[in-house]
Write a protein that binds this DNA or RNA. Structure first.
Lengths: 215, 215
DNA sequence: CCGCGATGTATCGGGCCGATACATCGAACG
DNA sequence: CGTTCGATGTATCGGCCCGATACATCGCGG
């Protein structure tokens, strides 16, 4: 229902207009933890789809003052994408409705990456939905490791064990984040630095720093 | 080149012939750590593809003695899939050639799940390839956290930090497994239990148990 | 007796990926 | 001074796999 790329592009273009290549770089930097690298084979079709829906507009890059180097080398046209008012509305709507697909690995990851543009109540709802989902996966793995252990070989069991470990770790991570949200603090900030970002939007104020255990 | 499902199905059908529903259950149990649940929308097309290629055969389930309840309720035909000699050959070939796609998350996971049918040299090669890939991802995340930290908000940074942590943890896990392989032992076996499995195949002997640190 | 969950087969639309092709530009190297 | 090489940049194609959906049987409990 809410493809990952659509959400991410609408979120990124609210920072600044960009052309495809730049968009891919920013996307890769922002989602590097959950996605290897966004393919052009999905980026460009998505951009066309967004433009058809009216969420973004595309415009060929114009020379700065329209009199500078008019036909020297005739720059290869870079297409710059800009988000529209309807696009911003669409993004807000996608944030508001948190369906089951919001809690799978990539869905949660991309939503989390734009938590700075998400209100606290929704943040909390998503974190708890994700925790529930991971807890279910954890129980499934425990079942397999308990009941069906003798049917599986040592390597498969080791894989389940590693997966179970990752689940338990993520649950703990989520608990920490949830506790932080409840107390109205921002996530663990290793050094004191108030997030700059000239607020062009209704993004939350991202309150002061805090500290968990790991420095 | 080597789709995940094709590999997993060929591997599973070497244990026993199965029908679709059963196959999905086994698949989900075996790959539960890396995949939520295999969809029929990919399972059945893949089965048809495998049959067209000659790797498997499909046969309608026959009543046991051909005289028992011939037309009582006319059982809904369950289709049983059986691997062929060419299928086993294909599986061995897929194991032998470890391309770059073998080292991404799902590719590695499914290969690892069938390590009991993989020779030790290939196991070692795959583990090291995976480690290299994870190390690269880790370096990428460190770069972002170091150089581009001030450009990103606190939530995005926290996501990267969590991803980095997962990378470091997996590298350590892989190191342990590699060390175990080098010393000729099986993966961490919490209680002494020799893997049963009547060897119908050229699968390695799965040597005796060992113990790392975590009991 | 009726619904409900487990078993069971199957299709359809669509997102996303990997490979590929093609073009420009600045810098490095011979 | 020419050439190669990597970064920048746009775009398409085939294919894997998923989520939703439809339909049918069986046993069990209400």
């Amino acid at each position: 229902m809410a493809p990952v790329l659509e959400f991410a592009i609408l979120g990124l273009l609210q920072e600044a207009p960009m052309h495809g290549y730049e968009l891919r770089k920013e996307l890769t930097a922002k989602l590097g933890a959950i996605r290897a690298a966004i393919s052009y084979g999905s980026l460009y079709p998505t951009l066309r789809r967004l433009q058809a829906a009216g969420w973004i507009t595309e415009a060929a890059e114009t020379p700065a003052t329209a009199e500078e180097v008019p036909a020297l080398t005739s720059r290869r046209g870079r297409v710059v994408y800009t988000i529209t008012a309807e696009g911003k509305e669409r993004f807000a709507q996608l944030i508001a409705q948190a369906g089951p697909e919001t809690y799978d690995d990539t869905g949660f990851g991309v939503h989390f990456a734009f938590f700075a543009r998400t209100d606290q109540a929704t943040r909390l709802r998503i974190l708890e939905g994700r925790r529930r989902k991971i807890e279910e996966r954890r129980e499934g793995l425990r079942d397999v490791l308990g009941r069906a252990a003798e049917r599986l070989d040592a390597y498969t069991l080791e894989l389940q064990r590693h997966g179970l470990d990752a689940c338990e770790r993520e649950v703990r991570w989520l608990e920490e984040l949830i506790a932080n949200e409840r107390s109205g603090r921002a996530p663990t900030a290793p050094d004191s630095r108030t997030v700059g970002g000239r607020g062009d939007n209704d993004s939350p104020p991202t309150p002061g720093t805090s500290r968990t255990e790991r420095p």
